[in-house]
């Protein structure tokens, strides 16, 4: 039996409420609002209270997929990564870095956004990177 509480930040809106995820044997069992956070002071909205549900949805992707004969099929990480690296190299060599475009995410972390734009700018020598904040 392994019960723990991990303090983290809500992934929905820009308020940035903090809560504790209660985990029990590797599963999230509930969401408890943080009282010490000056922003939400022990409160959450309906989305925050139920945040653990989508995380553990059975529809989550569990394996890399590659399209073969028009259908996405589960493959190993090695296959998906090699396929991607080859295609990216081909495009870069044939059409140049400016023929690639990158859409980064307002839902991912700062660290991930940083790496993604670095990959775009360094790997392809292009500034074709944007995200959906305009939306």
């Amino acid at each position: 039996m392994d019960l723990s509480y991990v303090r983290t930040t809500c992934p929905y809106c820009g308020c940035g409420c903090e809560f504790l995820l209660e985990t029990f044997d590797g599963k999230i069992t509930s969401t408890v609002p943080s009282k010490s956070n000056r922003m939400n002071q022990g409160k959450l909205c309906i989305k925050g209270w139920n945040v653990h549900e989508f995380v553990q949805s059975p529809k989550r992707l569990k394996k890399p997929l590659v399209k073969k004969d028009g259908v996405l099929q589960e493959v190993s990480w090695d296959e998906a990564l090699d396929f991607t690296a080859t295609r990216l190299q081909e495009i870069k060599t044939k059409d140049g870095g400016d023929s690639m475009a990158f859409l980064t995410s307002a839902k991912c972390s700062n660290e991930e956004n940083y790496l993604f734009q670095k990959f775009c700018r360094v790997g392809f020598g292009t500034n074709n990177i944007d995200h959906c904040a305009r939306l």
């Binding site: 929905y12 956004n113 734009q117």
Partner: peptide
């Protein structure tokens, strides 16, 4: 969205 601010801060812009 939760991290629009961060995506912009991190240079997720052309």
């Amino acid at each position: 969205q939760n991290n629009v601010q961060g995506a912009c801060d991190m240079g997720g812009l052309p």
